[in-house]
């Protein structure tokens, strides 16, 4: 497999990245670990005239936990997340999800920034970030902007990021309560048939708040506010979980593909969300 030819750049700082983006517009693409982009370039489904490798750009590989806020640089890899004890303690759902992405080799290269910025509905981090109510940090010619993860995704591979902007970090409040990231996949390395991220806060015997997001069940990740609302104020019993699953099914819009027909995907989405809620509740 031989991708089309391209000009390659490895700038040392963000100013260098932005000037190449400004010069070449949408003919230029930034690349982090490359494990989404390179396969598409090999298949010639992505045509990149000017490839900007971010590996030498300073200041994008840090994990910072201060007070109630977690900030993860865009070049932090899935392996880094799995390996970072303080992060695993502060937000164990990140590690639980990262362990379910691809395989060990891919996790050494695959980054948080690439995973969330790519806009592929199959990627796990976008739904997870919506569950965590994360904020994405974008840098462009007119400075830094922030966009809520829940507002970022417009359609498959279409996001609120402009062509001249680079996603440099994600930040989020330190999550409270019980968590679960549940994923059904056909085999190691596959995208989800259905995946669910759940965060549930318990107050006494009832659910005080719940955040639920689904992956690969629409052309964007799906933050299901209604599914979360169906749990609040309940003891997360069978009826409440059933109501949350029904609400979620109203929000997703899966399509038929080689992972199965629509009815099957809806069935799996229900099973996966039920498991995620039960596990998150048991940890809440």
């Amino acid at each position: 497999m031989i991708p089309a030819a391209f000009e390659y750049y490895r700038p040392k700082d963000m100013a260098g990245v932005l000037s190449i983006l400004e010069e070449h517009g949408d003919d230029a693409r930034v690349m982090a670990g490359g494990h989404s982009l390179i396969p598409m370039m090999k298949l010639r489904m992505a045509d990149v005239g000017h490839l900007i490798d971010l590996q030498d750009v300073e200041g994008m590989s840090e994990i910072d936990i201060s007070g109630n806020t977690i900030r993860i640089g865009a070049m932090v890899t899935q392996h880094d997340i799995i390996d970072h004890h303080a992060l695993s303690a502060a937000a164990p759902i990140l590690r639980e999800a990262a362990l379910q992405i691809a395989d060990p080799q891919v996790r050494y290269m695959g980054t948080v920034g690439g995973n969330v910025a790519n806009g592929d509905p199959g990627n796990d981090m976008p739904g997870l970030m919506q569950c965590l109510d994360a904020t994405f940090h974008l840098t462009g010619p007119d400075g830094e902007h922030t966009v809520a993860a829940r507002d970022f995704y417009e359609a498959a591979y279409m996001t609120a990021r402009e062509d001249d902007q680079v996603l440099t970090a994600v930040s989020m409040p330190k999550p409270a309560g019980g968590h679960a990231y549940e994923k059904q996949k056909r085999k190691i390395g596959d995208y989800a048939t259905a995946a669910a991220a759940a965060l549930i806060v318990k107050d006494g015997f009832t659910c005080a708040s719940a955040s639920i997001a689904m992956t690969n069940l629409s052309d964007t990740p799906v933050y299901s506010e209604a599914a979360g609302a169906a749990l609040v104020g309940t003891s997360v019993d069978d009826a409440a979980v059933g109501a949350a699953v029904a609400a979620m099914l109203g929000d997703i819009d899966p399509t038929e593909d080689n992972r199965g027909p629509i009815a099957f995907k809806k069935h799996v989405a229900g099973v996966i969300l039920r498991r995620a809620i039960e596990r998150a509740w048991s940890r809440a």
Binding site: Y8, G34, H35, I38, L51, D53, P104, Q105, V106, M109
Partner: peptide
């Protein structure tokens, strides 16, 4: 220090 699939890296990245 990382296990990498050499089919998914451009030579330029390995410079």
């Amino acid at each position: 220090g990382k296990s990498v699939k050499a089919c998914t890296m451009f030579v330029a990245q390995a410079d």
